[in-house]
Protein backbone atom coordinates (compact mmCIF):
# COMPACT_ATOMS: atom_id res chain seq x y z
CA UNK A 1 0.00 0.00 0.00
CA UNK A 2 1.17 3.52 -0.75
CA UNK A 3 -0.57 6.83 -0.23
CA UNK A 4 0.52 9.19 -2.98
CA UNK A 5 -0.12 12.77 -4.03
CA UNK A 6 -2.50 12.97 -6.95
CA UNK A 7 0.34 14.06 -9.24
CA UNK A 8 1.94 10.59 -8.77
CA UNK A 9 -1.23 8.72 -9.65
CA UNK A 10 -1.18 7.06 -13.08
CA UNK A 11 -3.78 5.06 -14.98
CA UNK A 12 -3.50 1.36 -14.19
CA UNK A 13 -2.83 1.83 -10.47
CA UNK A 14 -5.37 0.11 -8.23
CA UNK A 15 -7.10 1.78 -5.26
CA UNK A 16 -6.34 0.28 -1.83
CA UNK A 17 -9.23 2.11 -0.17
CA UNK A 18 -12.15 4.25 -1.25
CA UNK A 19 -11.40 7.70 -2.64
CA UNK A 20 -13.53 10.23 -0.77
CA UNK A 21 -14.13 13.92 -1.40
CA UNK A 22 -14.51 16.68 1.18
CA UNK A 23 -18.21 16.01 1.65
CA UNK A 24 -17.61 12.37 2.42
CA UNK A 25 -18.83 11.34 -1.00
CA UNK A 26 -17.20 8.23 -2.43
CA UNK A 27 -15.64 9.09 -5.80
CA UNK A 28 -14.20 5.66 -6.40
CA UNK A 29 -14.42 2.28 -4.70
CA UNK A 30 -11.73 0.01 -3.28
CA UNK A 31 -9.73 -2.28 -5.61
CA UNK A 32 -10.59 -0.30 -8.74
CA UNK A 33 -8.07 0.00 -11.56
CA UNK A 34 -7.81 3.72 -12.21
CA UNK A 35 -8.32 5.32 -15.62
CA UNK A 36 -7.41 8.79 -16.87
CA UNK A 37 -11.06 9.73 -16.39
CA UNK A 38 -10.94 8.81 -12.69
CA UNK A 39 -7.85 10.93 -12.21
CA UNK A 40 -9.42 13.90 -13.97
CA UNK A 41 -12.46 13.55 -11.73
CA UNK A 42 -10.29 13.48 -8.59
CA UNK A 43 -8.64 16.69 -9.75
CA UNK A 44 -12.00 18.36 -10.24
CA UNK A 45 -13.14 17.36 -6.78
CA UNK A 46 -9.96 18.60 -5.10
CA UNK A 47 -8.64 15.21 -3.99
CA UNK A 48 -4.99 15.62 -2.99
CA UNK A 49 -3.96 12.05 -2.04
CA UNK A 50 -4.97 8.56 -3.18
CA UNK A 51 -4.07 5.25 -1.49
CA UNK A 52 -3.09 2.58 -4.02
CA UNK A 53 -2.26 -1.12 -3.83
CA UNK A 54 1.30 -2.37 -3.81
CA UNK A 55 4.37 -0.18 -4.20
CA UNK A 56 4.04 1.30 -7.69
CA UNK A 57 6.39 4.21 -6.90
CA UNK A 58 9.89 3.93 -5.50
CA UNK A 59 10.08 6.26 -2.49
CA UNK A 60 13.52 6.99 -1.03
CA UNK A 61 12.39 6.71 2.59
CA UNK A 62 10.58 3.40 2.30
CA UNK A 63 12.23 0.37 3.88
CA UNK A 64 11.73 -3.29 3.08
CA UNK A 65 10.13 -5.66 5.58
CA UNK A 66 13.44 -7.14 6.70
CA UNK A 67 14.85 -3.71 7.53
CA UNK A 68 11.65 -2.67 9.31
CA UNK A 69 11.71 -5.78 11.49
CA UNK A 70 15.39 -5.41 12.29
CA UNK A 71 14.96 -1.80 13.40
CA UNK A 72 11.88 -2.73 15.40
CA UNK A 73 13.88 -5.30 17.39
CA UNK A 74 16.48 -2.65 18.11
CA UNK A 75 13.89 -0.18 19.39
CA UNK A 76 12.53 -2.85 21.73
CA UNK A 77 15.89 -4.01 23.10
CA UNK A 78 15.63 -4.50 26.86
CA UNK A 79 11.88 -3.74 26.99
CA UNK A 80 10.00 -6.14 29.27
CA UNK A 81 6.67 -4.36 29.84
CA UNK A 82 4.01 -6.86 28.81
CA UNK A 83 1.68 -4.29 27.31
CA UNK A 84 4.47 -2.84 25.21
CA UNK A 85 5.45 -6.31 24.02
CA UNK A 86 1.84 -6.94 23.02
CA UNK A 87 1.82 -3.64 21.08
CA UNK A 88 5.02 -4.81 19.39
CA UNK A 89 3.36 -8.10 18.41
CA UNK A 90 0.37 -6.23 16.94
CA UNK A 91 2.62 -3.85 15.08
CA UNK A 92 4.54 -6.79 13.62
CA UNK A 93 1.26 -8.30 12.42
CA UNK A 94 0.41 -4.97 10.82
CA UNK A 95 3.81 -4.77 9.09
CA UNK A 96 3.60 -8.30 7.75
CA UNK A 97 0.08 -7.72 6.43
CA UNK A 98 1.15 -4.46 4.83
CA UNK A 99 4.05 -6.10 3.03
CA UNK A 100 2.05 -9.18 2.05
CA UNK A 101 -0.43 -6.89 0.35
CA UNK A 102 2.39 -5.22 -1.60
CA UNK A 103 3.79 -8.61 -2.55
CA UNK A 104 0.52 -10.07 -3.77
CA UNK A 105 -0.37 -6.92 -5.66
CA UNK A 106 3.01 -7.08 -7.39
CA UNK A 107 2.40 -10.72 -8.34
CA UNK A 108 -0.99 -9.80 -9.74
CA UNK A 109 0.39 -7.06 -11.91
CA UNK A 110 3.12 -9.43 -13.14
CA UNK A 111 0.46 -11.94 -14.04
CA UNK A 112 -1.43 -9.24 -15.87
CA UNK A 113 1.63 -8.42 -17.90
CA UNK A 114 2.20 -12.01 -18.97
Amino acid sequence: MQRLPLSYIKPGMKTYEEVIDANGRVLCGKGVELTADHIKRFEEFGVSFVTVEGNPVKLPWEKDLEEELKELEKRFEGITDENLLEIKRLFKEFLIEKYQESQSSENNSNENKE
Binding site: M1, Q2, R3, L4, E17, F49, T51, L90, F91, E93, F94, K98
Partner: peptide, 12 residues
Protein backbone atom coordinates in the same frame (compact mmCIF):
# COMPACT_ATOMS: atom_id res chain seq x y z
CA UNK B 1 -3.52 -2.85 15.19
CA UNK B 2 -6.35 -1.00 13.50
CA UNK B 3 -4.83 2.29 14.68
CA UNK B 4 -1.58 1.34 12.89
CA UNK B 5 -3.58 0.69 9.71
CA UNK B 6 -5.32 4.05 9.99
CA UNK B 7 -2.08 5.84 10.77
CA UNK B 8 0.02 4.49 7.91
CA UNK B 9 -1.60 6.47 5.04
CA UNK B 10 -1.33 9.63 7.14
CA UNK B 11 2.39 9.04 7.65
CA UNK B 12 2.86 8.88 3.88
Amino acid sequence: KDIFFKLEPRLY
